[in-house]
Computed example of a mutant assay.
Amino acid sequence: MKAVHFGAGNIGRGFIGLLLSNAGYEVTFVARNERKIQLLQQQKQYSVTLANEARDTEIVNNVTAISGKNKAAVAAAIATADMVTTAVGVSALKQIAESIAAGVELRLSGHNLRPLHIIACENAISGSSLLKRRVYEHLPAEWHEKADSCIAFPDTAVDRIVPVQEHDDPLKVTVEPYFEWIVDRSSMIEGYREIDGIKYVDSLEPYIERKLFTVNTGHCTAAYHGYLEGYDTIQEAMGDTKIKAEISGVLGETGKLLTSKYHWDKKKHEKYIQKMMVRFTNPRLSDHVVRVGRSPIRKLSLNDRLVRPALQAHRLGIPIPYLTSAIAAALLFDYDQDEEAVLLQAAIRRSGIHDVIASYMGIPQKHAIHQKIVDSYGALKESYAIAR
């Protein structure tokens, strides 16, 4: 079995590539980093260490790599693959779509009609569906019907904390012990081979929102409040009782939303919340607040981890003071090494906070929570004496 994975970063190697290799796939990474490409081609293996007390280490075998610039090689790999996965960031899907389309066209023109599943393992709702639209934009129309018959793009939810890290060995990666990879089996082609470590479900949305509204919402709340307090890492921020209370408050609000919307057992969901809080405090990982808080424009968008649960909770009549505070903290994330943070602060200075909330978050000024966000933003700004 052959798998092609776009992205040889820490998530690609420490999570997706690891599970695929363990399932018996030969994994070909499509990468940009020439040093990593060369090492993967030469060594055909790398090590993954768990951030647990024993520091358990596993060798990942049967791997290689090709350069994303070598479009002919990428297309050839996809033409014979049994699975294609990505971990490049949702904004980069459009950059790899043309290469995937070329591989699909080569596959179909060579009469390879074996089932192929293409799964975008990104922090996004309906990431694979988005990738399909991007791919079909580059795939000639005459191939669309045939592609629909043998190629599927099942959506997925993935969860594993893998911070930025440096090792003497560029391929070595350290990951947290916990992981979750859930795939929508209702979108898969019959007869697919299940992979150990993946959970297949008929309805993905509850799992996506549980992860997005708990892990991602809680994590970025720690990052944005931690940044305002001057902490360097999430682990340091989690040691601050005030920040920990903010995170607990946020997850209490999203928890009420999720248990109401999906009729879940409240005690079970509370256990899930506490498990996630423990993950954030893992002393064997050092995760920088600026990494977790990066790309605030994306994280403040209408369907992402802050605004989406805030709007849904509001519609259900759930008070959201902690969510509005987290949104306000994100609006104050002014890290000058983050392109989106710089753009966001420039927009606030140029157009004002009301316009930014309306244009970047999709919350019009007449909406009930618009002013709540403005008030929370003003209070936080004054509290931290941030001059704008």
Results as ranks from 00 to 15, higher is better:
322 Y>K: 15
253 E>A: 09
269 H>W: 13
305 R>C: 07
295 S>L: 03
273 I>W: 06
296 P>T: 03
235 Q>V: 09
309 P>A: 10
245 A>K: 15
237 A>E: 08
242 K>Y: 14
254 T>K: 01
261 K>C: 06
223 A>C: 08
273 I>N: 03
305 R>L: 06
323 L>T: 03
219 H>Q: 12
239 G>A: 07
237 A>P: 11
234 I>R: 02
311 L>T: 09
272 Y>E: 07
293 G>C: 08
236 E>K: 15
239 G>I: 12
322 Y>S: 14
324 T>S: 03
270 E>C: 12
273 I>C: 05
308 R>M: 09
217 T>E: 00
317 G>F: 04
246 E>C: 13
228 L>C: 08
306 L>C: 10
218 G>S: 05
294 R>K: 14
321 P>C: 07
281 T>W: 04
273 I>L: 11
312 Q>W: 07
220 C>E: 01
227 Y>N: 04
321 P>I: 10
280 F>A: 07
304 D>Q: 01
315 R>K: 15
283 P>A: 09
294 R>N: 01
320 I>L: 08
268 K>F: 06
309 P>E: 06
269 H>M: 12
273 I>P: 01
251 L>Y: 03
280 F>D: 09
271 K>G: 12
221 T>A: 15
303 N>I: 11
283 P>M: 08
292 V>Q: 02
243 I>P: 05
320 I>P: 11
224 Y>N: 09
302 L>D: 12
229 E>T: 12
241 T>W: 07
323 L>D: 02
303 N>K: 15
278 V>F: 12
322 Y>M: 09
297 I>R: 07
267 K>S: 15
320 I>M: 11
238 M>A: 13
253 E>W: 03
259 T>D: 02
249 G>K: 08
259 T>Q: 05
302 L>E: 14
248 S>K: 15
244 K>P: 01
241 T>E: 14
265 D>M: 11
247 I>R: 05
291 R>W: 02
301 S>E: 02
232 D>G: 15
317 G>M: 07
218 G>F: 06
282 N>C: 10
254 T>D: 00
289 V>A: 02
229 E>G: 04
313 A>N: 04
